[in-house]
Design a protein around this nucleic acid. Sequence first.
DNA 1: CGGGATCCGGTCCGATACTG
DNA 2: CAGTATCGGACCGGATCCCG
Lengths: 110, 110
Amino acid sequence: MNYSQKKIDISDEKCPVKASLSILGGKWPLIILYQINNRIIRYGELKRSIPGISEKMLIQTLNQLVEHKLVHKKAYPEIPPRVEYSLTNIGYNSLPIIDKLEEFGRAHLL
Amino acid sequence: MNYSQKKIDISDEKCPVKASLSILGGKWPLIILYQINNRIIRYGELKRSIPGISEKMLIQTLNQLVEHKLVHKKAYPEIPPRVEYSLTNIGYNSLPIIDKLEEFGRAHLL
DNA sequence: CGGGATCCGGTCCGATACTG
DNA sequence: CAGTATCGGACCGGATCCCG
């Protein structure tokens, strides 16, 4: 079965930084949130917009983000299937983090 | 619907977000930077200020941060030894990221 | 006091194959 | 099209021991 990939439990204290990192700190979450941004985007297009990610990691990370209510998922009962992803308002509020990350990278790392 | 959707290109290998995550994205880097903040702090006190971290991870992460020039290390040739860590200018510029992380955690995760 | 070195289990993650 | 299932290597990170 799916190991639920629990992020490391550093929540022993109520440190907001640790809490955020436990959800956003992995390899892909912020990249995915950044790509969805203010779009309503289908699975296929999302995958194409993130070169280098495997389907496994994309789905796994998306599911976790849906679990934590940063991402909204809407599936249409059609053939062929269609699934749309978009940010919830919580997810939307994570974008400033990414902006700072981008700013920092641009200023010091490139 | 007709929202202005900014075009995002992540296919570029020099994506600033990825570059930042490659340095800051682990479990401890941001926590450590956050703890050092604008102090000059000795190794022992730093370790005590981060409950749950092992010496191995603290040293390993510190060395990487020194390598990437986010942290400055000053060792005094004394007995017993004394080593002080502080943020470089670059490291200091990473603090806004952590602020956003903290803000987000406080608003949505606690 | 401030580390380094090594062992080792668990987890992450890519590749591949399969499904409705 | 949008996922699921499984395998296996890589790597992270904790525990332990050692050193100047």
